[in-house]
Design a protein around this nucleic acid. Structure first.
Lengths: 129, 129
DNA sequence: TTGCAACTACGAAATATTTCGTATATATTT
DNA sequence: AAATATATACGAAATATTTCGTAGTTGCAA
């Protein structure tokens, strides 16, 4: 057996996933270089994390070339949803609206994005103006 | 020295803080009982966590009675903001709007709350309709 | 005044996660 | 062909976090 659960990735695993989601299937070398743009981390450290992720079926490894290529098996949206649920519970006691208010209040958002959100609100309110 | 940093509480610490934020200064016994409504956890485990939190200045301990009373030193809002920032970065690569859309989409929110959010949107857009 | 119940202190084990050194294999360059 | 660069595998140390047993106190009830 072996299934791609919507497991909760650890912090280090999530960082790797972000690189893969953003850039598609990549080698350890590439991922490690990306990570090093932000923080210092050894090559074998990244390698190890990705090996563990392979065992957990979070990524799939293509070994046809000497440099293995890793592809994410977890979907970005599904994983975000999963993490959001947990975060909402633990940090906001489940109050989505409070989280949303904080997120909108503390971070700059473009008018376009605000409009998208407004559209969503309209849909949610069932057209109520 | 010793200051009440907006430190990142661990999961266990956050659970304790939620109880304190929601109920005000409490004893270990009370906190432990609350936690046990959700999951099983030993009394001394909770005690230990709260002792560590005291050392980290996340809570203050009143020892005047035999049962010590713990009061949160971290503010709920500030802590949420801190955690949200981190979460936004790690899970949504900083895109507040994507997080908001997901949060609104996946969780039921009352019309009143939606209106609150709409008001906030209006303010943020600077009145642009 | 004895004994039980409820507390705190504290060390240490159990887990979970991250980090990296070393060995070894395989390309590539000179 | 030798030296050098680049990969993977793997064990194990370093950290971080959680969990709990045990010892010792104190309050209270029988």
């Amino acid at each position: 057996m072996a299934d791609a659960q919507p497991l909760k990735p650890t912090d280090a695993e999530l960082e790797v996933l972000q690189v893969l989601w953003q850039n598609g299937p990549s080698t350890v070398r590439f991922v490690n270089d990306e990570l090093n743009k932000t923080k210092e981390v050894g090559y074998t450290t990244t390698l190890k994390i990705m090996q563990l992720m392979t065992e957990k079926n979070m990524v799939r490894r293509d070994e046809s070339n000497r440099s293995h290529v890793y592809e994410p098996l977890l979907k970005e949206e599904a994983t975000q949803k999963h993490l959001l649920d947990k975060f909402l519970d633990s940090a906001f006691r489940g109050s989505a609206s409070r989280l949303v208010m904080q997120a909108l209040g503390n971070h700059q958002t473009t008018p376009e994005e605000l409009n998208q959100i407004r559209d969503l609100l309209n849909k949610l309110e069932g057209g109520t103006k």
